[in-house]
Computed example of a mutant assay.
Amino acid sequence: MEAFAEFLENIDNPQHRERTEEVLAWVFSEFPSLKPKFAWKQPMFTDHDTFIIGFSLSKQHLAVAPEEAGINHFSDEIVQAGYSHTKGLMRIPWNSQVDFSLLKKMIDFNITDKADCSTFWRK
């Protein structure tokens, strides 16, 4: 979590900071082989130098970005979990529970789908 310490310290809302720290710590714990990276003003995780998942904050939600392929693959499950999404990110409202099983599926999907990817983003 050291890679994200400064980012977390700068989150003014204590509840948002706690939730974000909880999610990032969960990713660290569940996926110890992923590398933490702070880029484009957001915490993210990579595998063999390819993007797996990123997170960003807004007043209303924690945004989860598994790339468009991840959103497309899990679109129905995202809606079933009670979240909204765009083509590039899923929104977890601050007042909603985190569906960690869905998050795990998204990360597992990206790790598998991008196993042979040699670029940071999908092409």
Score class of each variant (00 low, 15 high):
residue 50 T to P: 09
residue 77 E to V: 02
residue 34 L to V: 15
residue 28 F to E: 15
residue 38 F to M: 09
residue 37 K to T: 14
residue 109 F to V: 07
residue 7 F to L: 04
residue 55 F to G: 07
residue 34 L to C: 15
residue 37 K to L: 15
residue 121 W to E: 10
residue 103 L to W: 07
residue 19 R to N: 14
residue 88 G to K: 11
residue 17 R to D: 11
residue 36 P to S: 14
residue 121 W to K: 13
residue 91 R to K: 11
residue 23 V to A: 02
residue 77 E to S: 10
residue 94 W to P: 08
residue 28 F to L: 15
residue 40 W to Q: 06
residue 73 H to A: 08
residue 120 F to P: 08
residue 2 E to F: 03
residue 34 L to G: 15
residue 107 I to M: 07
residue 52 I to N: 09
residue 43 P to T: 01
residue 83 Y to P: 12
residue 78 I to H: 07
residue 107 I to F: 08
residue 42 Q to W: 03
residue 111 I to E: 07
residue 65 A to I: 01
residue 29 S to W: 00
residue 30 E to L: 10
residue 25 A to D: 02
residue 66 P to W: 03
residue 104 K to P: 00
residue 107 I to A: 07
residue 66 P to A: 03
residue 37 K to C: 11
residue 113 D to K: 11
residue 89 L to A: 09
residue 21 E to G: 14
residue 18 E to I: 08
residue 12 D to C: 08
residue 29 S to K: 12
residue 41 K to R: 15
residue 53 I to E: 06
residue 24 L to R: 02
residue 65 A to T: 05
residue 96 S to F: 07
residue 119 T to L: 11
residue 47 D to V: 13
residue 71 I to H: 00
residue 102 L to P: 00
residue 56 S to R: 11
residue 66 P to S: 06
residue 48 H to N: 15
residue 53 I to P: 05
